[in-house]
C-alpha cells in the first residue's frame, strides 16, 4: 500500500448538458519520502487534481487514500502551498504564520508557538520582514511566507501547486533550492505541480505528465536517475538529464499536437478576392 493513492479518479463539474469532465481515470501512487512532480499545460486540470489530494474538493468517482484512509476534507497532515500565495493581506508575516501554527498546535505554550513561528520565518530568510504586510513584500518574499506557513504546521506531506509559476527565473532558482533543502532535512513526502519540465527534473524523483483536459489523465512516468544533491550548473551537461528532458518534452509535444489535430470543428474559409479599389479613370 502506497503512502498516497489515487485510484480510478474522475472529476466532473456541473451536471447534465453543462457537465465538463475535467479529470478521467487518474491513478497515482506516491511512496513515503518521495518527491513527485506532475507537469502539464496550463488549464489541463492540475489545480483540480491538487484540490482533490488536499481535500478541498471530492472526486466524482474513485478514491483518494492517504496512509490507507480515504481523504475527507482538509487535514493538517497535508500542507499546501498555493499558486497565488493566498496570504491574508491584513496580517503581518508573523501573524500569517502564527495563524497556521496556532491551529496546528492548539495546546502548545505561547513560548513554543513564538519560537516556532520565528524559526520558520528565519528558515525562509524573512526575519527582517517579520512585521511587514504582504503588500509590502515582493512576489518571491510572499511565496516564502507561504512556504513558511505551510511547513510550520509540520505536515507529513507538502503539496505545491505551481508555487513558483509567477516568479522571475532568479528568485525561482533560489526558492527551488530552499524548498529542496527543507525537504531534504526531514524527508517529507512532496508533490509538486508545475508547468516547467526543467524545474521538475531538478527537484523530483519522478515526473508524471498530465495529458490536457477535458478528460485529463496521467501519462507514463519518467524516473529521474540523477544523484542528489543535484548541481544546476552541471545538470545541463548530464547525459541522463538531457535524455529525460528530451523524452518528456517529446511526449508533451506529441500530446499537444494530438490535441490540436483531434479538433473536430472544421472551419469553412470564405472564398473572397480583394476588391480593386484603385481609382479608375
Amino acid at each position: 500500500m502506497a503512502y498516497l493513492e489515487l485510484n480510478n479518479i474522475t472529476k466532473n463539474f456541473g451536471t447534465g448538458a453543462d457537465m465538463t469532465e475535467v479529470l478521467d481515470d487518474i491513478n497515482l501512487h506516491i511512496e513515503e519520502g518521495e518527491f513527485v512532480a506532475i507537469v502539464g499545460f496550463t488549464g489541463s486540470g492540475k489545480t483540480t487534481l491538487v484540490n482533490l489530494i488536499n481535500g478541498l474538493e471530492a472526486p466524482t468517482s474513485g478514491e483518494v487514500l492517504f496512509k490507507g484512509k480515504p481523504v475527507e476534507g482538509t487535514s493538517h497532515e497535508r500542507g499546501v502551498i498555493f499558486q497565488n500565495y493566498s496570504l491574508l493581506p491584513w496580517l503581518t508575516v508573523y501573524q500569517n504564520v502564527e495563524m497556521a501554527v496556532r491551529e496546528a498546535f492548539p495546546n502548545a505554550s505561547k513560548d513554543f508557538l513564538d519560537k516556532r513561528i520565528k524559526e520558520y520565518i528565519a528558515m525562509v530568510n524573512l526575519s527582517p520582514a517579520i512585521t511587514k504586510r504582504p503588500k509590502e513584500l515582493s512576489g518571491g518574499m510572499r511565496q516564502r511566507v507561504s512556504v513558511a506557513r505551510a511547513l510550520a504546521m509540520d505536515p507529513e506531506m507538502i503539496i505545491m501547486d505551481e508555487p513558483l509559476g509567477a516568479l522571475d527565473a532568479l528568485t525561482r532558482g533560489n526558492l527551488q533550492d530552499e524548498i529542496l533543502n527543507i525537504w531534504n532535512k526531514n524527508k517529507r513526502t512532496a508533490l509538486l505541480i508545475t508547468n516547467d519540465v526543467d524545474e521538475g527534473i531538478y527537484m523530483a524523483d519522478r515526473i508524471i505528465p498530465l495529458k490536457p483536459g477535458p478528460k485529463a489523465t496521467l501519462g507514463p512516468e519518467f524516473k529521474i536517475n540523477i544523484d542528489r544533491p543535484r548541481d544546476k550548473t552541471l545538470l545541463n551537461d548530464n547525459p541522463e538529464y538531457k535524455k529525460t528532458r528530451n523524452a518528456i518534452i517529446e511526449y508533451l509535444m506529441d500530446i499537444g499536437n494530438e490535441r490540436s489535430s483531434n479538433s473536430t470543428i472544421h472551419y469553412e474559409l470564405p472564398d473572397l478576392q480583394p476588391r480593386d479599389l484603385r481609382w479608375r479613370a
Binding site: N54, L56, G73, T74, S75, H76, G79, V80, F82, N84, S86, L88, M99, A100, E103, M153
Partner: peptide, 20 residues
C-alpha cells in the same frame, strides 16, 4: 483564496468568520 486558506488551516467556524 482566503476561504481555501481557512479550510486548509482547518479554522473553526468562529475563527473563520472573525479572522478571515
Amino acid at each position: 483564496d482566503y476561504i481555501n486558506v481557512a479550510k486548509v488551516l482547518k479554522l473553526g467556524t468562529f475563527q473563520k468568520i472573525f479572522k478571515v
